[in-house]
Nucleic acid binder design. Sequence first.
DNA 1: GCCGTTTTCGGCCCGACTGTTTTCAGTCG
Length: 570
Amino acid sequence: MRNYEIAQILYQIADILEILKVEWKPNAYRKAARTIEAMPEDVYEIYKKNELEKIPGVGIHIAGKIKEILETGSLKYLDKLKKETPFDYEGLMSIEGMGPKKVMALYQKLKIKTLKDLEKAAKHHKIRELFGFGEKTEESILKNIELARTKKKRILLGTALPIAEEIVSGLKKYCIDIKYAGSLRRMKETIGDIDILACSENPEKVFEEFSKSGEVIVKGSTKCTIRLNTGFHVDLRIVKPESFGSALQYFTGSQTHNIALRRIAISKGYKLSEYGLFSGAKQTAGSYEKDVYTKLGLQYIEPELRENAGEIEHALKNTLPELVSYNDIKGDMQVHTNWSDGENTVQEMVKAAAAMKYKYIAVTDHAGNLKIANAMNETRLKKQAKEIEKIQKKFPQIKILKGAEVEILKNGSLGVKNSVLKELDVVIGAVHSYFKMPEKEMTQRIVNAMSNEYINILAHPTGRKIMQKLPYGFDFEKIIEASKKYSVFMEINSWPERLDLSDINARKAMERGCRLFVNTDSHSVQNLNLIRFGIAQARRAWAEKKDILNTLDYEKLVRVLKKTSPHSKL
DNA sequence: GCCGTTTTCGGCCCGACTGTTTTCAGTCG
């Protein structure tokens, strides 16, 4: 049972309790759910240590329920609650504008149980007759049912960021300041909607220009929401300059981070809102985001850390890590060319990397017997090595490492002979087949591969693809141990649908003493820019510069690849 | 249901927008 699943159960309880008009308990369950959802440590581990009640927001009762969930896989309390709400509350509440109160009212007055019932009632104009409902509510229900059918759920960070950047740059000329906020600024792997914050002397003009990008859903004096033709929502908020910092703080979230921050504000006699930090009627901070944190007695917290996953406690004690920066990367360690399945030549890739001021780049085309991806055999590897040597002479400012991405076979051996691997500067191992092996065998397979003396990097270690494919089952703890034992380093793959290791797994690995690489797995020149997504996940995992090995100078990097010093001494 | 250098009882983040009703409840973020 994963943290996510436990959180979902607690959210369900909160929803039902809210429908049943129970006071405050929904907040308590929701708070516990959010904490658990964002926690890097497995709840199961905490349960084993008998420390469930140490989780913030979890008291004796919720701890008992988590225990039951972990021990039996279900929860009697939830089953009982579900019986009290014999209608599809989840489906009904998934309709925009439908909350617990309306869902319950419609059930009691019209016996509406399902989305179908709801649609039918609306079409027959039954809803407008009810007290508290009206014609417009009925129309919006019909419209939103239709939209829910086509609605896209969350989208990848790599998809959302360019959209946001385009909107921001288009509106810039009408604004004093404009920035994207929300989960996008926190660089979360998926984004629910895009939040943009601006201050301007002519807000109406900004809203007018903004409205051209999509269909207007909500429009007030300070806020406008549009729907892009992909179904995706973009919010624009306009505030006064003296509130821009506090608004940026507020709209960056996360929600749990903000709630925690506001509680600190209250405990110090302040009130914190998007308009500023107030002591009575007097604003003590607001123009600059940093001031909000400073005035609350906190270290500035980078957006990527704002998940209420320990960052506030550290900020209070001034012990936050100095995160690896977006400029710290000195080279990319996984890059494909047209020797295998990449689009560009070695020279084009090297030239692009040099333009990024990289000090080194590893050319790591697929090698071995992999049927897909045009993998190279021994002869072609040798040929490519010669070409690399030629190109190296043309680009003295950047070191080109000869490498390969090698298949980890079913039994854990590598798809290329050791005598060939020996000649390479860097060897990347990856699982590309037999994803559904039993957990024990998969673990042993990967550990076997890592014990090979020439392998350096384990690529996209869990094999997950966001919103498409779950990680293959294996014991992550054992891989962490193998990583340290054999000096084979896991990567954070920057590809937006991979981001593998994830922020949570990367943090777990680093807490256990692992160092990582951040690579793009580029298949074209443009892909080299994906590195920012990988670095973002490293930052979300609390990585400092020392934790990321491709921040090292070339000379030190080579020592790492030659495995001459143990993992712990790097 | 949780939590406490104001409290073991009595609070619980805060504000915008919409639609309904006519001063506010519900929903959303």
